[in-house]
Design a binder for these strands. Structure first.
Length: 528
RNA sequence: GGCCCCAUCGUCUAGUCAGGUCCAGGACAUCGGCCUUUCACGCCGACGACGCGGGUUCAAAUCCCGCUGGGGUCACCA
C-alpha cells in the first residue's frame, strides 16, 4: 500500500498538512507500505523553494518522516511536479486524442462575461462549452499559429458519478453539475486535478487520504481515472480542522504555522499526540500515546467526521504532561536544544550583547524570544499609534481604529515577504507606515511594543528577524484582536481600572509588611 | 444561493455500523476543596450533552424521514 502527502509550497508549513501527513504515515506503516512526499508546485506564481524547505523541515520536526520524496529520491521520481511537466503535457494530449478533453481558446474576458450572465440568470457558474465541440484539427492549427489555449476535461453531460469515500460510502454527483475543469493552463503547466491524478497513478498510490475540502472535486478525478483507463485509488476524506467558531482553520483565527508551535516550545511528540486525537480516538480511549502506538492501532473506521476544533488549551495540557514526565536532566536538555534551534541562541546573544552589563541581563532580551505571546498591557498606550508622540494633537492620539488599520497593514506586508530578513522587514514596515499614513517613529514604536512587550528593546528589524515569521505574526494578530471592538475610551477606562487594582494590591502588601514588622515577625500573611 | 458533507457536555471524544448493560463514560477548560510557605503539579468533587419534530420497535443517543443548525465547495489556487 502506498500513500502520500502532497503539499503545495505556497506559504508557511501548515498544521493541516501535518494532520493529514500523520494519518497517511500511520496508514503506510501500519500496513507495511510506503509514505511518499510530493511537492505540488504547479502554481509558479505562488510557489517558493523557501516554503518547500520549511515544509520539509517542519514535517521532519514532527517526526513524520517520508519514505520517498524530493530530497531523498525514490523509484518513481522526480517528486516535485515542476520537474514533471512533460509528463502532464503528454497525458493532456492523450486525453485530447481520446476525445475526453479538448482545447479551449476562450479569453479571460469572455469567461468573465459568461460568468456574469450566468450569475444574473441565477445559475451556477459552469463553463458554457463554447469550445467543447470545436474541430480538434482546427484546435491544433490555432495552437500552432500561436494562439494560447488551455485544455479542459470533457465531463459527461448526463448520468452521475459515485465517489466511493471510505468513510462516507458512495457520494453521488450529477455529472451535468460538474464543470469542464481546466487540466492544463495556458502556461503549459497542469492544474491540481490533472497533475494529482497522473502522479498518483504513476507513483502507485493506492489510498488517497486527504482533507474533506477535496471531496467535491473528486468526481472530476474519477472521470480522469476512467478517461485514462486506470483504476482509481481508495479515497478517504478526513474532516477539516476548525477554528473555535467552527469555520475551517485559518491563520486569522489560529496559529496555523508549524513553526509557531516549534518556537512556542511545543514538543513534537506532544504535538503529534494532540493531532492524533483530533477526529480520532484510540480503541482503548487512551489519550496519551506515542506515534508508534498510534501506528500500531490505526483504524480508519474510528475517524469521526465532525470537524474538530483545534484547541490550544488541550495542546498545552498534553505538552505539559510530556514535560513533567521528563527527568530534570532530560528537561534541561530539551530546553537547551530548543534554544539552539535555527541558531537562535547565538542570534539572541548578538542582540543582547550591546545592551547588557551582567550575564544575568541576558534574560531580559531572551525573554522576548522565548515565549508565544508577550504581555504589553503595561505599555498599551504605545499600541495606539501616536499615543507616544508629542507632535500629535489629542484627537489623533487616541485612535484605536486607526491603529488597527495600521497593524493590519503591517501584517499584510510581513505575510507577503519572501525573504525573512532585516532589509525586507524594514521595507515592509516602511510600506505599512506609508500606507496607513502614520509617523514613522510612532508606527515603529507600536510594532516594537507589540513584539517585545515594552518600548526598550533591541533594534526593531533585527529583533523581528530573530523572532521569526510565525511568532511575529502571532503577536501582531494578538494586538489586532485586542484592538478590535475597543474604543479609545474603554481602553483608557480599562487601563485606569488596572492601575487602581495594582495600587490597591500594593497598599495591601505594604500594610502586611508593616503589620509583620509590628508583630515581631509572627505575622501570618494568610490572615492579611 | 446550487451542490456536497456533518450533528453526544463550551471544547476533544466513548457509545451509533451489529437498538436494551447509557436517567450517556473519559479528557480539556471552568468552579470548589485537599495537599502546600506561594504558585504550579497531584488528588478529590461540582457544573455540563444525545439540536428539534415525526415515525419504526416491547425498547432508540443508536434505525428511517423531515426540519433546523454548522461546515465545505462552486478559479488558468491548491
Amino acid at each position: 500500500m502506498r500513500v502520500r502527502i502532497a503539499p503545495s509550497p505556497t506559504g508557511d508549513p501548515h498544521v493541516g498538512t501535518a494532520y493529514i501527513a500523520l494519518f497517511n504515515l500511520a496508514f503506510a506503516r501500519h500496513h507495511g507500505g510506503q509514505f511518499i512526499l510530493r511537492i505540488e508546485d504547479t502554481d509558479q506564481r505562488r510557489s517558493s523553494t523557501e516554503s518547500e524547505q520549511a515544509i520539509l523541515d517542519s514535517l521532519r520536526w514532527c517526526g513524520l518522516q517520508w519514505d520517498e520524496g524530493p530530497d531523498i529520491g525514490g523509484p518513481v521520481g522526480p517528486y516535485r511536479q515542476s520537474e514533471r511537466s512533460a509528463l502532464y503535457r503528454e497525458h493532456a494530449d492523450l486525453l485530447i486524442a481520446k476525445g475526453r478533453a479538448y482545447r479551449c481558446f476562450c479569453t479571460a474576458e469572455r469567461l468573465d462575461s459568461v460568468r456574469a450572465a450566468q450569475k444574473a440568470a441565477g445559475q451556477d457558474w459552469r463553463y458554457d462549452g463554447h469550445c467543447r465541440d470545436l474541430d480538434p484539427a482546427a484546435g491544433v492549427a490555432r495552437e500552432a499559429a500561436g494562439e494560447t489555449c488551455v485544455v479542459r476535461l470533457r465531463m459527461p453531460r448526463d448520468g452521475e458519478t459515485a465517489v466511493p469515500d471510505a468513510l462516507r460510502g458512495a457520494v453521488i454527483y450529477e455529472n451535468h453539475r460538474v464543470d469542464d475543469q481546466i487540466l492544463l493552463k495556458s502556461d503549459g503547466l497542469p492544474t491540481y486535478h490533472l497533475a494529482n491524478v497522473v502522479d498518483d497513478h504513476h507513483m502507485g498510490i493506492t489510498h488517497v487520504i486527504r482533507a474533506e475540502e477535496w471531496i467535491n472535486s473528486t468526481p472530476k478525478h474519477i472521470e480522469l481515472y476512467d478517461a485514462f483507463g486506470w483504476d482509481a485509488p481508495v479515497f478517504v476524506h478526513m474532516p477539516l480542522l476548525r477554528n473555535a467558531d467552527k469555520s475551517k482553520i485559518s491563520k486569522r483565527k489560529n496559529p496555523v504555522s508549524l513553526e509557531y508551535y516549534q518556537r512556542a516550545g511545543i514538543l513534537p511528540r506532544a504535538f503529534v499526540n494532540f493531532l492524533g486525537q483530533l477526529g480520532y480516538s484510540m480503541p482503548d480511549e487512551r489519550e496519551v500515546f506515542t506515534l508508534d502506538d498510534f501506528v500500531a492501532q490505526l483504524d480508519l473506521s474510528r475517524i469521526s467526521l465532525g470537524g474538530p476544533v483545534f484547541d490550544l488549551a488541550k495542546l498545552r495540557h498534553i505538552n505539559g504532561l510530556y514535560l513533567r514526565e521528563l527527568s530534570p536532566a532530560d528537561l534541561a536538555g530539551e530546553v537547551a536544544s530548543w534554544r539552539k534551534e535555527d541558531g537562535r541562541d547565538a542570534a539572541v546573544a548578538e542582540l543582547a550583547r550591546e545592551r547588557m552589563e551582567t550575564l544575568a541581563e541576558f534574560r531580559d532580551v531572551e525573554g522576548i524570544f522565548a515565549s508565544e505571546l508577550v504581555d504589553w498591557s503595561a505599555h498599551c498606550g504605545h499600541l495606539l499609534v501616536g499615543a507616544a508622540s508629542k507632535r500629535k494633537n489629542k484627537s489623533q492620539v487616541l485612535d484605536a481604529k486607526r491603529s488597527r488599520g495600521y497593524f493590519e497593514a503591517v501584517i499584510a506586508a510581513l505575510e507577503g515577504l519572501r525573504q525573512w530578513g532585516p532589509e525586507g522587514i524594514e521595507a515592509a514596515l516602511r510600506g505599512a507606515v506609508a500606507k496607513a499614513d502614520v509617523q514613522v517613529g510612532d508606527g515603529f514604536m507600536a510594532v516594537r511594543v507589540a513584539l517585545a512587550g515594552r518600548p526598550n528593546a533591541p533594534g526593531l528589524f533585527e529583533m523581528t528577524t530573530v523572532l521569526g515569521r510565525a511568532l511575529t505574526l502571532a503577536r501582531l494578530r494578538a494586538v489586532v484582536t485586542w484592538l478590535k471592538g475597543k474604543t479609545s475610551k474603554n481602553l483608557f477606562e480599562q487601563r485606569r481600572e488596572q492601575l487602581a487594582r495594582e495600587l490597591k494590591a500594593l497598599d495591601a502588601s505594604e500594610a502586611r509588611v508593616r503589620l509583620a514588622e509590628q508583630s515581631g515577625g509572627r505575622f501570618d500573611p494568610k490572615e492579611g
